[in-house]
Write a protein that binds this DNA or RNA. Structure first.
Lengths: 218, 218
DNA sequence: ACGGTGTACTATACACCGTACGTTATAGAG
DNA sequence: CTCTATAACGTACGGTGTATAGTACACCGT
């Protein structure tokens, strides 16, 4: 009975395999049995290192958040804010599963604190008081989360020919008398479901709002 | 063999039952077999009216979106935008499953068009050009989605004593030298994870940004 | 009144999931 | 060289969505 040798597994290896599977198979098709199989190991072997599936999810999320680059120094705070938001977005785009990991699981752990620390530090240094800094942080974070999750979902839908066809036909069958504006703006709506331009549009709105709320900064 | 009578089921009844189950059991604990049992019917009976589970999800989402109130007329466009965003948010708070239905499933169907029509109509009437109207619509929608999903998840976490304790201890164990700002702002961060004030803070930032981008309105 | 027909629901079955429990072989300590 | 802790295994249970086939009822034209 060829038993697999003794120390084939470790948490990092499992996390890496899990991440690969989520990205190739899609988050919903991901399963503990799948990652065990990919590691050439029985399903229960995972439980030596993780208490359950959610525990593994959290580990993957933490791993991904650790990849975020540090905040650039020596630029105006507006650009620092932009940089933080953009790098979170581009990490989510690179690893689409991150969107679901962030919005579907309770977050805890150091890595979440790291991104908060960066953004809050920028805001405090720019002169925001404690309350405004915290509120702004939450606002920016949830905007990035919402906008990018949406973009990822739209992109996924466009890739699935069946869903894409259904969406197109629904759009085209909309009564022009009942939904005049939607029909009129159909091309623009299709163009603004994602992309850097769309993301920056909303981000710049927020930053402009911040700027005028706190005009004595520079 | 006491067969259940012939026309006990209809789509609307199934949707209503599914919605009740999602709200009482939580979205993750929801199952086709559960709603079938609640209806006193075999699991496969659902398939007479819905092609599969996702199809039922879509129907529930459509049903909920239909509950959105119309846009108020005869007020400045800023207040109309606020009203639309707030009513979407309060619908999501009333039906927490809607957050997951919106961000986890491709959307299609008339009801999505209805909310888009309302918001786009307001923006066009306020003088936004086609492109800006579409971009603004997407920005506002994704902000509401992200902010409210986050709020719902935080509230759920606070309700689960196990997760809540873990989050508290993680927060308290953060090194004050590694995460000085987070530690310093802990009380503010705890206060700004949700609530009307937090939501309006971000919403007002966006509207302020819109206002200054388009100063010739009123 | 009656047999045929469509259909609303049932029964059975399959593949898969997460994971509780008990077992076993091996790596390292003594 | 033996002992022990533990990493990985096997088995099993209760759950899921759903494909496929079957069944009894409502309605229909005759």
């Amino acid at each position: 009975m060829a038993r697999t040798p003794r120390n084939t597994l470790n948490p990092e290896l499992i996390v890496r395999t899990a991440l690969e599977l989520m990205e190739s198979e899609g988050t919903s098709a991901f399963s503990l049995r799948g990652v065990a199989a990919a590691l050439g190991v029985g399903p229960m072997a995972i439980y030596t290192y993780f208490r359950n599936k959610d525990d593994l999810y959290d580990a993957v999320r933490n791993h991904l958040m650790g990849l975020l680059p540090p905040v650039p120094a020596d630029v105006p705070w507006q650009d620092q804010v932009r940089a933080v938001c953009r790098s979170l977005r581009s990490l989510m785009l690179q690893h689409p599963c991150l969107a679901q990991l962030l919005s579907g699981r309770p977050l805890s752990g150091q890595e979440t604190a790291r991104v908060a620390e960066g953004l809050l530090g920028v805001l405090r240094a720019a002169g925001f008081d404690k309350e405004r800094a915290a509120r702004t942080h939450t606002t920016l974070f949830t905007y990035v989360l919402g906008a990018t999750s949406w973009e990822i979902q739209m992109a996924a839908e466009r890739r699935d020919p069946e869903a894409w066809r259904r969406l197109r036909t629904t759009m085209e069958s909309l009564s022009a008398t009942e939904f005049p504006t939607v029909v009129d703006l159909a091309p623009e709506l299709a163009r603004t479901t994602g992309g850097d331009t769309q993301f920056d549009y909303g981000l710049d709105l927020l930053i402009a709002g911040l700027d005028m709320q706190k005009p004595r900064a520079t």
